[in-house]
């Protein structure tokens, strides 16, 4: 993943692009998803992702203040929210962000995509900075190589949710079986069950509907979904 550089109002779009690129989600599908995000949710998510970026070490990220970009393209998600001047009619400055190390950025992008998809569901509206920070804090606990399967199945859950959202024009809330996640690049069999359990322990995924009377995380008919 090459260096990413963007204005703070573009954080959401840039990070979602980075995440989509990793997951193989097409640009047009991503566009369909972002088109559905309300201005209010886009503004909030963008701001929260910038706050997460600020927490990254200086070895991974550089930020500097700059005048806002000269043009405003109203059709772009990133500029729904920016005021060009302050109350003294001086130009507002904004952060220009350069991410050197891609790994944490993609992580933030993945979390951003989870939350972006969650905002499309009326029953799963996220609530503020604590959610984004909480999800990200749990996400970064995944370490390679021991959590490779968990990372892989997280990607698969995300890709599956994005696909369902694009195909049905509805957010995915019902969940999918572990076996189906193999089609989206996730591990299969016992490895999938262990990976999903790891995600559940970290509150990154949850069982939407149990395959039996409940409690058996390894049951093949469990329906899993991302937790936001």
């Amino acid at each position: 993943m090459p260096e990413q550089s963007f204005f703070e109002t573009e954080a959401l779009l840039t990070l979602l692009n980075a995440a989509s690129s990793r997951l193989g989600i097409s640009a047009s599908d991503l566009q369909n998803i972002t088109d559905e995000i309300s201005d209010q949710d886009a503004t909030r998510l963008n701001g929260e992702l910038v706050e997460i970026l600020k927490l990254l070490p200086s070895t991974a990220i550089e930020m500097e203040e700059e005048l806002p970009p000269p043009g405003i393209d109203q059709s772009r998600l990133s500029f729904r929210i920016w005021r060009q001047t302050n109350s003294d009619r001086q130009p507002n400055k904004m952060l220009f962000i350069r991410v050197k190390d891609a790994a944490p950025t993609v992580g933030i992008g993945l979390v951003g995509l989870v939350l972006a998809l969650a905002t499309l569901s009326p029953s799963a509206i996220t609530s503020g900075m604590s959610t984004v920070k909480g999800v990200y804090d749990n996400f970064v606990k995944l370490k390679s190589p021991e959590d490779d399967d968990a990372m892989s199945i997280y990607d698969a859950l995300l890709k599956c949710a994005a696909t369902i959202t694009v195909e049905t024009e509805q957010p995915s809330v019902s969940g999918v079986k572990a076996a189906e996640l193999a089609d989206f690049g996730g591990p299969s069999g016992d490895r999938a069950a262990k990976a999903l359990k790891r995600l559940k322990d970290l509150s990154l995924a949850e069982v939407a509907a149990w395959g039996d009377s409940g409690g058996d995380l390894a049951h093949p008919d469990n329906l899993w979904r991302l937790r936001a």
């Binding site: 090459p2 260096e3 990413q4 550089s5 963007f6 204005f7 573009e10 779009l13 840039t14 692009n17 980075a18 690129s21 640009a27 566009q31 550089e62 970009p69 220009f96 350069r98």
Partner: peptide, 18 residues
Amino acid sequence: ETNLAAKICGTWDKKRTQ
């Protein structure tokens, strides 16, 4: 259009490596 949608361009500065 494709380049911009993929966010691979849009700005230039002295520190840019991409």
